[in-house]
């Protein structure tokens, strides 16, 4: 008996606080940001600045770095967390599952800066990897401050939430489907590819979208690592804080925001999971 209900006064009253907050503190500031280059520099020069920023090789490189990094991180995180989540759901006794899930999701609340610090503890100049590599007679290996450091840091940041999603999704898989496939003569691999992976598809897309968006906007980890590889959030921060270049920072933020939002939109079109987060 679901019938579309029209907007009623009571609904308007219920929506007003949130709508006001978001219009005042997100929508209007966002429009202000779009128009800021024009208002600060004048229309002609503002538009020129837009063209300049979008065509700038250094910014484009930072954008490319961010995009490639996020894409790689998303892929690795999804594969790893799907394996771990499925393992927790299917091969783990309830007792082990409890503490494993607790440990693996412990970093859920950790801000990116802590993850950056962790990567330094692992692969920094005083890190364990450096100590171990020296002990085994080689040079001190450090990877924290380059691509590898960011890559591992972003994965670390995204793993807990993705693992939790995949564990829940694996629990919710209909076992009867697998049993049906087995009785029809499917091998373990065929069951995996024909039943289990399609069953986890929605979760994979929804998780991938959120991991990607998080990675695109990740700032804390890169900030702590003060990485040699320049990612766009750091570029924006530098333009804003160090050079007081508000117009450029605004344009770059818009660029980053637009790309992230577009990718999420595509991901959402690919799923019809209404309850999913994005």
């Amino acid at each position: 008996m679901l019938q579309p209900r029209r907007l009623q006064y009571v609904h308007i009253a219920l929506l007003t606080p949130v709508a006001t907050l978001f219009v005042a503190f997100w929508l209007i500031p966002a429009f202000n940001l779009i128009l800021l280059p024009l208002s600060r520099l004048g229309v002609a020069e503002g538009l020129a600045r837009y063209a300049q920023v979008v065509g700038n090789a250094r910014y484009l490189e930072a954008l490319f770095n961010t995009f490639a990094l996020s894409l790689g991180v998303t892929l690795c995180t999804i594969v790893l967390s799907a394996c771990v989540g499925f393992y927790l759901s299917r091969f783990c006794s309830a007792r082990h599952r409890g503490w494993l899930l607790a440990v693996l999701t412990l970093p859920l609340s950790f801000p990116g800066v802590i993850i950056g610090f962790y990567i330094i503890l692992l692969g920094g100049r005083q890190g364990v990897i450096a100590d171990l590599s020296e002990l085994s007679g080689g040079e001190r290996i450090t990877f924290a401050y380059g691509f590898m450091g960011l890559f591992l840091g972003y994965i670390y940041f995204s793993l807990p939430r993705a693992i939790a999603s995949f564990a829940a999704a694996s629990d919710a898989l209909d076992k009867a489907l697998e049993e049906a496939a087995i009785t029809l003569g499917a091998s373990r691999w065929q069951v995996l590819f024909d039943v289990i992976i399609p069953g986890l598809r929605e979760t994979a897309i929804a998780s991938a979208a959120i991991v990607f968006a998080t990675a695109m906007g990740a700032f804390g980890t890169a900030f702590t690592l003060s990485a040699k590889l320049e990612v766009l959030p750091i570029t924006i921060y530098n333009e804003f804080t160090n050079y007081a270049n508000f117009a450029t920072a605004a344009i770059l933020s818009l660029l980053l925001g637009a790309i992230t939002w577009l990718v999420l939109l595509v991901a959402r079109r690919m799923t019809d999971a209404k309850g999913a987060l994005l």
Partner: peptide, 22 residues
């Protein structure tokens, strides 16, 4: 849709918009 924007758009952009406005 509007509600999802602060999650979809990087926090840095939202923060910048807030600072430049208020």
């Amino acid at each position: 849709e509007l509600l999802m924007m602060p999650v979809a758009v990087p926090g840095l952009a939202t923060a910048l918009a807030l600072i430049l406005m208020y």
